[in-house]
C-alpha cells in the first residue's frame, strides 16, 4: 500500500535529456529521535533507490537519515528508445517497493 509517484514527459525525442521526478511515501525515521518514554525511536529509512531503463541501470542513490520524510528525488536521463523505466526503493525492515513507468521516444 506504499504510494509512489513518478513523473516523466509523455513523449520525448531520441537523444533528448529529460527529467525524472519521484516521490514516495515513507516516514524516514532518523534513528536519532527520542520517543515519549525516553528511548530512541528505531531507525526506519529507505536506504537505496535505483532506476533502470530497459534493463540498464541509469541512476542509483544511497539515502541517509538526512533525507526528508516522503522522499522526493529528481534526476535526468537521455532518451534512447521507447520502453520501461523500472524503479526500486529498498530500506530498513525489509522495505521494498517497485514501480515502472513507460516512456515513448519519437
Amino acid at each position: 500500500m506504499t504510494n509512489a509517484l513518478i513523473r516523466l514527459p509523455r513523449s520525448v525525442k531520441k537523444g533528448e535529456v529529460f527529467e525524472v521526478k519521484t516521490l514516495i511515501q515513507h516516514p524516514m525515521e532518523t534513528g536519532f529521535r527520542a520517543g515519549t518514554n525516553g528511548t530512541t525511536i528505531p531507525r526506519d529509512i529507505i536506504e537505496e533507490m535505483i532506476c533502470t531503463y530497459n534493463g540498464v541501470e541509469i541512476f542509483r542513490m544511497k539515502l541517509s537519515s538526512a533525507i526528508a520524510a516522503n522522499p522526493y528525488v529528481s534526476f535526468h536521463t537521455v532518451a534512447t528508445e521507447s520502453g520501461t523505466l523500472y524503479f526500486r526503493w529498498t530500506g530498513d525492515n525489509g522495505f521494498k517497493v517497485e514501480e515502472t513507468a513507460r516512456i515513448t521516444v519519437a
Binding site: 542513490m61 544511497k62 522526493y72 534526476f75 535526468h76
Partner: peptide
C-alpha cells in the same frame, strides 16, 4: 552523510534534486 548518487553518461545532465533534513 546526506546522499550519494551514482550517475553516468546515460544521465545526459548531472543534476539531481531532493528534500533534506537539517
Amino acid at each position: 552523510y546526506v546522499l550519494n548518487a551514482t550517475l553516468g553518461p546515460r544521465a545526459g545532465r548531472a543534476a539531481i534534486a531532493t528534500h533534506i533534513k537539517l
